[in-house]
Structures are given as structure tokens and as C-alpha cells.
């Protein structure tokens, strides 16, 4: 479904990605793991067309993305939950959800305000609040809801639960599980390895702008040394 093949990208003179390849299959949950500054967010920005790539190719459902502007990529069905959430602070919760809502792929059961609220009941209580009046957890739920409202076939989350309280994290993982069951493909960046092992099918480990390891959850569980070496986690 998503096929990233040997891409290079960077900011100005400094190259960040060196031949990154990864793929997400239909209905799969895939993670991008690695410490800070290893190129995970840069990879996401490249996929969404927010950063030009200098080599390689990106294809989504057979269509080349690398020359498309971001809005066309989004309309092909990639919904972004960006790093730092980037809620529109001057819009209400309702407006955040509706402003960019679309069903450009003509999904048969499109997301509506109701289905988003079923996923995150808290948002329904905050309908008229402005984006900057929400807690971090509520902002993250809103960012996910906002991405769902464009009815994507692939949801991309850059830092799904960073800086959130354990209870809120659990709520977000629960929601992602529900979405997975609904058949949505998900590409997720997070440091919460245990939660990811439970929900994800496949993992890509990044270091210094390259994918250094990839495999299934079972394979990752069997190699605890990977965690300490590439994620800086003590086992």
C-alpha cells in the first residue's frame, strides 16, 4: 500500500535520510522506532510531501507521491497526526474537525463527528472549546479525529502518546486498536515499545537516517538487545 524506496532527504545542506526504505501493507500497523534525531519525523514529512526527497521514490497504492503537493497526497488517503499535534488553536474542537473534513476516496462508511466522538467521548464534551483550551491528551485525540475526518486509508501518527499521562495513553492505544480492527492501516512513531508490540504487526528501526532493522513483533520480542542498542531502553 505504502512503498518508500531508498529515499534521501534533508534540510538545506544537511542530509538527514540516507536511503530509507519501508512498506506498509493493507490493514497493517507498522511502527517507526528509534531515538530522537534519527530521521523518523523527517521520513514522515517526506511521505506527506512536506519535505522534498532528493533520491528514491515513494508510492501509495501504486501512485508516485514524490512530485505531488501535500494536499494531493492527503486526498489520496494519507491522514497525518503530526508531531506536536499542531491543533488549530484559533478554531473550536468542532471547527478543527470540520474545517478540512472530506471524503475524497468515497469511503462507504465515512467518519463523521459522531464516529469520532464514539472513539473519543471527551471531545464531544469539549465541542465549543478552542484548540488552545485543551489538555495535551485532548489535543492528541483531536489531532487523530481531525485526520480521520479526511477519511484516510492510512493513518500516520508522529509521536502518538508523547508527554501524555498513562490513562490518556491507554485511551489512545485503545482507539488505535479499534481503528485497526476497522481495517485502517497505521504507521506510528512512538517510544512506548510495549504498547506498540501489542498492537503493531511490523517494526522498522531507524538509526542515523537509515533503517537498521525490520521485522515482526515476535522477532522484536526475541531480540531484547535491539531495544537497548537502538532505543536506549534498559531491559
Amino acid at each position: 500500500m505504502l512503498e518508500v524506496a531508498a529515499i534521501n532527504a534533508g534540510y538545506g545542506e544537511s542530509q538527514v535520510l540516507f536511503g530509507v526504505s519501508l512498506r506498509v501493507a493493507e490493514g497493517e500497523v507498522v511502527t517507526l522506532l528509534g531515538r530522537n534525531g534519527m530521521g523518523k519525523s523527517t521520513t514522515v514529512r517526506a511521505i506527506l510531501g512536506l519535505l522534498p526527497i532528493t533520491a528514491g521514490s515513494i508510492a501509495y497504492q501504486g501512485q508516485a507521491l514524490q512530485r505531488l503537493p501535500s494536499h494531493r497526497i492527503a486526498r489520496l488517503g494519507i491522514g497525518l497526526v503530526p508531531e506536536g499535534r499542531q491543533i488549530f488553536a484559533n478554531l473550536t474542537v468542532r471547527e478543527n474537525l470540520l474545517a478540512t473534513a472530506a471524503n475524497s476516496r468515497r469511503a462507504r462508511e465515512p467518519f463523521t463527528l459522531e464516529t469520532v466522538f464514539a472513539l473519543f467521548p471527551r471531545l464531544a464534551e469539549r465541542l465549543r472549546h478552542y484548540g488552545n483550551q485543551l489538555s495535551g491528551g485532548e489535543q492528541q485525540m483531536l489531532a487523530i479525529g481531525r485526520a480521520l475526518m479526511i477519511n484516510p486509508s492510512l493513518l500516520v501518527l508522529d509521536e502518538a502518546t508523547e508527554g501524555l499521562a498513562p490513562l490518556i495513553r491507554r485511551e489512545i492505544w485503545q482507539a488505535l486498536t479499534t481503528l485497526k480492527d476497522r481495517g485502517l492501516s497505521i504507521l506510528v512513531i512512538d517510544k512506548n515499545i510495549d504498547a506498540l508490540l501489542a498492537i503493531a504487526d511490523r517494526h522498522f528501526l531507524m538509526e542515523k537516517g537509515q533503517v537498521v532493522w525490520s521485522g515482526t513483533s515476535d522477532e522484536l520480542r526475541r531480540k531484547p538487545e535491539l531495544k537497548s542498542r537502538y532505543l536506549g531502553l534498559e531491559q
Binding site: 501535500s70 492527503a74 488549530f88 471547527e95 470540520l98 474545517a99
Partner: peptide, 25 residues
């Protein structure tokens, strides 16, 4: 209107509006 919301959203975060499928140009 949604156009109005998109314009206001674009005022604070142009890139994000584009990444959500709006032809901001």
C-alpha cells in the same frame, strides 16, 4: 463556512492545512 475555517486555520498553520488535503495555494 468551511472556507472561513480553512482560512483561519491557514493563518496559524498553513502547512498543516495543506497536509490535511486543502489546496492552500
Amino acid at each position: 463556512t468551511r472556507i472561513g475555517m480553512q482560512v483561519r486555520a491557514g493563518a496559524v498553520n498553513r502547512e498543516m492545512v495543506a497536509a490535511l488535503g486543502v489546496n492552500i495555494t
